[in-house]
């Protein structure tokens, strides 16, 4: 078994128009910048993919990564918890102009909806958002005398995520807090594409420390020295 692919362009070549795409990371930490930029490059060359629904905790920062994807007008709808950042102008302008749709989800509910999607659980109940605007229209049920909000699973056609090291079977370990949403998104997408700094042979990762088992991963691409969104933004970088 070998899930590695030779290039970033090949890794993102099958993402279609209208796809639901989970993008890993929390801010810049764990964000698969090179995969996102490869997707933008493909769109600029071919006009596809467009009309994407993107699931991420945030809405991008500056003019790289997710913000650049939004700036290219490739994203029709964003599902996130916190569409603010140091430089949220790209998303903010489109949102206030009514040109991008936003589904705002509390962060823990977002994580659990993704986890549920990956675990085959169509709905669950949580106290989060009870009595607030974000529970409007949702089913409420009482358990042991306390009201809970019903939330539905979130699944995606594709997840693009970042890890630190993979073996050829797609077993993954992450770097520090860059783990965040990435392992959950690997579980919840029909096709998970991972960029890693290092690919090793099976056996090269101690089974005791595998965070994402390879069953949740379909494609692995090597990016040996990944860029970091925070560094790019300090340089005032734009993509392209």
């Amino acid at each position: 078994m070998d899930k590695t692919v030779g290039s970033l362009a090949e890794a993102v070549s099958r993402i279609g128009d209208g796809a639901h795409v989970m993008i890993g990371g929390f801010g810049g930490s764990g964000a698969p910048i090179e995969l996102i930029h490869a997707l933008i490059d493909r769109y600029r060359a071919t006009g596809h993919p467009k009309d994407l629904t993107v699931i991420n905790n945030n809405a991008g920062n500056g003019h790289v990564g997710l913000a650049a994807l939004i700036e290219q007008r490739m994203v029709k709808k964003l599902i996130c918890s916190f569409p603010r950042s140091a430089d949220p102008k790209v998303f903010t302008d489109l949102y206030l102009a009514g040109e991008i749709e936003l589904e705002l989800v509390p962060q823990g509910t977002l994580a659990e909806r993704i986890r549920a999607g990956g675990a085959g659980i169509p709905a669950f109940y949580t106290p989060t958002a009870y009595g607030t605007d974000l529970a409007r229209g949702k089913k409420i049920e009482e358990f042991d005398g306390r009201p809970y909000v019903q939330e539905r699973w979130l699944k995606a056609d594709v997840a693009i995520v970042k890890a630190y090291r993979a073996d050829r079977h797609g077993n993954l370990v992450y770097s520090k807090a860059a783990r965040n949403f990435n392992p959950l998104m690997c579980m919840a997408a029909a096709h998970t594409i991972v960029q890693v700094e290092e690919i090793v042979e099976p056996g090269g990762i101690d089974p005791e420390v595998v965070v994402t088992p390879g069953i949740f991963v379909q494609s692995v691409v090597c990016v040996t020295d990944p860029q970091q969104e925070e560094d790019l933004n300090r340089q005032g970088a734009h993509h392209p």
Partner: peptide
């Protein structure tokens, strides 16, 4: 949220208050 206008953002606050 301060109500209408602007971009709404919630983060983890709604989870924390019930946990």
């Amino acid at each position: 949220s301060v109500g209408a206008g602007g971009v709404p953002a919630v983060g983890g606050a709604m989870d924390l208050v019930h946990g």
